[in-house]
Design a protein around this nucleic acid. Structure first.
Length: 571
DNA sequence: CCTGCCTGCCC
DNA sequence: ATTCTGC
DNA sequence: GCAGAATGGGCAGGCAGG
């Protein structure tokens, strides 16, 4: 199968907004593809080469691609950058600039789906001294053989972002449609995918023999797609939705899936990357558990033995490393709070009701040691939920998770089987009023607004200077993006404000004039933001989002550095 | 050998 | 992670 | 409500270049 055929189909899919049409177009590709090609195409749409637990990545981002386009097109660096600025999409830049060159030179060889995939694979394998140049050169070679449309999707693939409007569920539907003409196979296909987490494998098996898609089973050392939680604003809504339910603390660490078979243990991240080597202490603890075979999920976070408090997520992050594990393990001892069970000694537990899974989980965990069950209570009233929620906050935890007692494990789905409640979802959300000092051009669909987000600062009334505290790119409606762009363009200045301490460079600086209310979950120590900087470390907002513009406030009555420091101290 | 840039992956 | 939008 | 695509802070690790 020629890659050009696939690229043209992608181009059609991208133009549509109706899911049914997109699914049909994709199904037509699968109809024509061999099982092997379907496997590759499925990975390509995901922007991946292999399932996540194999740990294969291209190691190429925007800067590398920019360089490859420059080399392949013969244009100067600034020309390519300038095109990128206006298009907001390197795929479009490649299509445009390589297209112009194309007219002057002859095709060398035509690309097939398999040859494109194989070239990408070779790029991913490059490592060591000189590998960056090699990766770029390989991409240049592909560009030299690509039509403009092919170049667009090759580029986006390398960046892991096809922007077709097609995600996993649409691929699964398209497989069904390709075989049966409708979505009737979606359920077994989806189940197979949730159990193996490997979209290419699913596509291949389904094309080879559709019936085989029913044979997938949960297996130790094959991580399943994680269940996700919906959000609600307060305990009352949770009771209205679930009635009597379980409430667990929500711990602010890494979500891990622990697989055990005899003495062998593997640990996978939420995105199913293998992270076993980072947690020798957890592995040892798991080896001592009673079951011979088990798969369970938990949250791993570091605990400070001295002041008997959990470390912040930021500090727990130090455990996510390859080298210096022993030192880190000593300094940041981990606890794993297990909260769900997928498999136990030959039995698939994912179809059992929550409460049953929970009981089996508790049956082999003690409440002491490295691995213990997450704190859980069964409640019937909003008041009970609220008191658990308050208790969680007082322990420096994120909030709570409420769980439907009867629901099976909803692999791969965001469902109301699990509902999370955090402080920032309700009325007591923390906000600051910050001054806009710069803004960004948007990428992708935001390029048409010329707006992607803002850089904001607070006022230090002791030094009379502004200090950056966050970039804000979430919380804008499309309408607001247009309005912000218009408003800020008028205040654009060539140089950064002289009364601003900063390290980040926005695309445009603006005169500090407009104030916005920004919500956040947390205040963290920052290596890059300058708010309240001490010894090179400032303060920043975790999960910042725009709430509203504050026309009633001027830059000097925005939140002050001192206030931010206070809030940081007491959180 | 150190530093900065870039990337990928945690949340 | 949060948030917005088209269907 | 689903599915997808925008966007955030910050850490570690790999590589290039001084």
């Amino acid at each position: 199968m020629q890659f050009e055929e696939v690229a043209k189909a992608f181009n059609e899919i991208e133009k549509r907004s109706g899911r049914l049409e997109m699914t049909d177009l994709l199904a037509r590709i699968f109809e024509k593809a061999s099982p092997e090609e379907a496997e590759r195409i499925a990975y390509i749409i995901q922007g991946e080469l292999r399932p996540p637990y194999e740990g294969i990545d291209l190691g190429m981002g925007e800067k590398f691609v920019l360089e490859a386009i420059r080399k392949a097109s013969g244009y100067g660096k600034s020309k390519v950058e300038q095109e990128f600025e206006s298009e907001g999409d390197l795929g479009l830049v490649a299509e445009k600039l390589l297209g112009k060159k194309r007219q002057q030179s002859l095709f060398q060889t035509s690309l097939s789906v398999l040859s494109v995939y194989n070239s990408m694979f070779r790029i991913s394998k490059a490592g060591g001294s000189g590998s960056q140049g090699m990766k770029i050169n390989r991409l240049v070679e592909m560009y030299n053989n690509a039509t403009p449309i092919e170049a667009k999707y090759i580029t986006r693939f390398v960046l892991g972002q096809l922007r077709l409007g097609v995600g996993d569920p649409t691929i699964l539907d398209a497989l069904s449609v390709s075989h049966e003409g409708d979505k009737s196979w979606r359920e077994p296909i989806e189940r197979a995918y949730n159990l193996c987490s490997d979209i290419g494998h699913v596509a291949r098996v389904f094309l080879e023999d559709p019936e085989k898609i029913r044979d997938f089973k949960i297996e130790v050392f094959k991580p399943i797609m994680p269940a996700m939680a919906e959000r609600l604003a307060n305990p009352k809504e949770i009771i209205a939705k679930l009635g009597k339910c379980a409430v667990e603390y929500k711990y602010d660490g890494f979500r891990i899936a622990v697989h055990k078979k005899g003495n062998r243990v593997e640990i996978y991240s939420r995105r199913l990357e293998k992270m076993t080597h980072m947690f020798p202490d957890v592995v040892a603890a798991v080896q001592n558990l009673r079951p011979r075979e088990a798969i369970f999920e938990g949250e791993a976070l570091a605990f400070n033995e001295e002041d008997k408090r959990f470390y912040s997520f930021q500090e727990t992050m130090h455990r996510r490393r390859k080298y210096g594990l022993e030192t880190a393990a000593k300094k940041y001892p981990l606890y794993v709070f297990a909260f769900d069970l997928h498999y136990l000694d030959g039995e698939d537990c994912t179809t059992c009701p929550y409460l049953e899974r929970r009981k089996k989980l508790e049956s082999f965990l003690s409440s002491k040691g490295t691995i213990k069950p997450s704190t859980m209570r069964i409640v019937e009233t909003a008041k009970e939920i609220d008191s658990l929620f308050q208790a969680a906050l007082s322990m420096k935890l994120e909030g709570i998770m409420a769980k439907d007692l009867k629901a099976p494990y909803t692999a791969g789905k965001r469902k109301f089987a699990w509902i999370k409640l955090k402080k920032s979802y309700g009325q007591e959300m923390d906000t600051i009023d910050a001054v806009i000092v710069g803004y960004y051009r948007g990428k992708g669909s935001r390029a048409r607004f010329g707006f992607g987000g803002i850089l904001v600062a607070v006022y230090n009334d002791e030094t009379s200077r502004f200090e950056t505290i966050a970039k804000v790119g979430s919380g804008f409606t499309e309408d607001e993006m247009g309005r912000f762009q218009k408003m800020l363009e008028e205040d654009k200045v060539k140089r950064p404000p002289t009364n601003l301490d900063y390290e980040m460079d926005p695309d445009f600086w603006v005169h500090p004039r407009h104030v916005v209310e920004v919500a956040y979950d947390n205040i963290t120590r920052s290596p890059t933001h300058t708010c309240g900087r001490e010894k090179g470390k400032g303060l920043a907002l975790r999960f910042p989002r725009m709430i509203r513009i504050r026309d009633d406030k001027g830059p000097f009555n925005a939140t002050t550095t001192k206030e931010v420091e206070e809030m940081h101290k007491f959180s």
